[in-house]
Design a protein around this nucleic acid. Structure first.
Length: 468
RNA sequence: GGCGGCAUAGCCAAGUGGUAAGGCAGCGGUCUGCAAAACCGCUAUUCACCAGUUCGAAUCUGGUUGCCGCCUCCA
């Protein structure tokens, strides 16, 4: 895949992408912490990795994708306590919700979804190895990573440890580290956790694994010591990914991931979405507001993954209207009967595929790819309105759109099956119209609207469109 | 204080040296009993500002201004 290039956070530049094994790509994505419903910020992260995976598959790669489920950490423990639930049913509830939500927005299931709670032993083993190597130390029954022993620490975030402000976002008094920059691998379980039975017994005492070692353990267990791509959001570069790298690479001496792809955040009125609870825009909330999953998907997809995406009131409405344009064209193609064969059709299709491929090869340039799609749609519409397309041509176009939609999953190719009752109403309206009984015709139009259908009078007779 | 990102039409946004893609909105037209939808057409002499390099700059260099993100156990 010489033409495919990704922006690698590690090198801060676009690099040609070549997988470790030709034709096979291994990807790890930081997963959700299952203590709440996912919001659009988190959803965007998974939309970005979904686009990446779909494009690699479109290019013929076999992709192994691992998304972890963080079901054992401070948030889930606290969340379950406030909810008055045991940890397991609590996290299971939100894990199930997570799967439902990503399915609703058309995200392909990952190959594996390892849970942190099932891998504590692997984490303890990692900590043990780090201690043996002298990369970690135990203090007051917690195990910390010793950053001073890791010369490459900071290579991903390019932070100069001597210049950062320590303690600006964390209360240092809570920890007994030798160096405030060291991070926790295993931390001593709290009294409340011991009472609830949420702890793991080790040679250092009863502990809770830290977040960084969770991802480190699961990534290496499922994808090996070195894999192709690590995806996540930019906000996690420091300290999370830096610490993951520190843990894994000081044990293996190999690069954990060869490419680091980070998506940017979703912002709501200049604030980070992960702010106050009532400000959180969850996928569930949007679905309840009547937006289709595919509309949410299209919107989340609509800006380049490395750029911030702004959420505003009309954003989803705009996405809906854009999709309508695509649907309308597919609808026309589906119903096309006559017309002249268009001789340049193969060239048109070839150029279109080329346009989309060139755009996506360049670090998944979605704007340029969508531009190519809408330009193509416009050309097709023109052919249709000039009767320059025959059934065979229409079929080829539907074929290429279906192919391209492997990447985007935004088209709707379903041919609508209408209820006979609706068809009767439509027929009655046509009859009324022929009788010039406008009152009755408009009345039926209203009635159909109440049933959720819009009447369109087209050249090939009246059509119904579902209002979503 | 440190590190990084961004600035292109009413809004979103592509474009890293050759004369401004695309979407939404707007306007004009076709169709229609009227609508709606759809389709067709139009809509930035100009890319935050100032200077420089160049035959040529949104694109490169220096500076200025404004906005945003991250900075240790919070995912």
């Amino acid at each position: 895949m010489p033409s495919l290039r990704f922006y690698n956070t590690m090198t801060r530049s676009k690099e040609p992408f070549t997988p470790l094994q030709p034709g096979r790509v291994s990807i790890y994505s930081c997963g959700p912490t299952v203590y709440n419903y996912i919001d659009i910020g988190l959803a965007r992260r998974f939309i970005a990795s979904d686009l990446l995976i779909r494009y690699l598959e479109y290019k013929g790669c076999e992709v192994t994708h691992v998304i972890n489920i963080t079901d054992l950490d401070d948030r889930t423990i606290q969340g379950s306590e406030s909810a008055g639930m045991d940890l397991k049913p609590f996290t299971e509830k939100y894990t199930k919700a997570f799967f439902e939500d990503i399915e609703a927005i058309g995200i392909k299931p990952a190959t594996e979804y390892p849970k942190a709670s099932d891998h504590v032993e692997d984490m303890v083993k990692l900590a043990r190895r780090l201690l043996e190597k002298g990369m970690a130390y135990e203090k007051l029954k917690s195990v910390y990573f010793d950053i001073s022993r890791c010369s490459k620490y900071g290579k991903l975030s390019k932070l100069d440890l001597n210049k950062i402000k320590v303690g600006s976002t964390v209360d240092l008094d809570d920890y007994e580290k030798e160096n405030p920059r060291d991070f926790t691998l295993l931390k001593r379980a709290k009294l409340s956790e011991l009472k609830r039975g949420i702890y793991t017994k080790t040679e250092w005492g009863n502990i809770q694994p830290g977040w960084h070692i969770e991802c480190a353990a699961m990534a290496m267990k499922y994808l090996g010591e070195s894999f192709d791509i690590h995806t996540s959001s930019r906000a996690l570069i420091f300290p999370h990914h830096e610490n993951e790298i520190a843990i894994c690479e000081s044990l293996t001496g190999k690069p954990l991931a060869r490419y680091w792809l980070h998506s940017d955040q979703v912002r709501t009125s200049s604030k980070n979405v992960n702010s106050a609870e009532e400000d959180r825009v969850t996928i569930r909330k949007l679905l309840r507001q009547g937006y289709a999953g595919r509309e949410i998907r299209f919107w989340l997809l609509s800006n380049h993954y490395r750029k911030p995406l702004h959420y505003f009131d009309d954003a989803l409405q705009q996405a809906r209207r854009s999709l309508r344009k695509l649907d309308e064209c597919v609808d026309c193609l589906n119903h096309l009967k006559d017309g002249q064969p268009y001789e340049e059709i193969d060239q048109l299709i070839y150029d279109f595929k080329q346009g989309v491929g060139d755009a996506m090869d360049d670090d998944l340039n979605i704007s340029a790819a969508f531009s190519a799609i809408f330009k193509f749609i416009k050309q097709i519409n023109k052919l249709i309105s000039n009767s320059l397309l025959d059934r065979t041509g229409a079929d080829s176009i539907i074929g290429v759109l279906k192919k391209i939609d492997i990447i985007f999953n935004i088209f709707n190719f379903e041919i609508q099956q209408l209820d006979p009752e609706l068809l009767d109403l439509l027929q009655e309206r046509t009859f009324a119209k022929n009788q010039k009984n406008w009152g009755r015709a408009d009345q039926i139009r209203e009635l159909l609207k109440e049933k959720g259908f819009l009447v369109k009078d087209t050249e090939r007779g009246p059509q119904l469109r579902l209002i979503k």
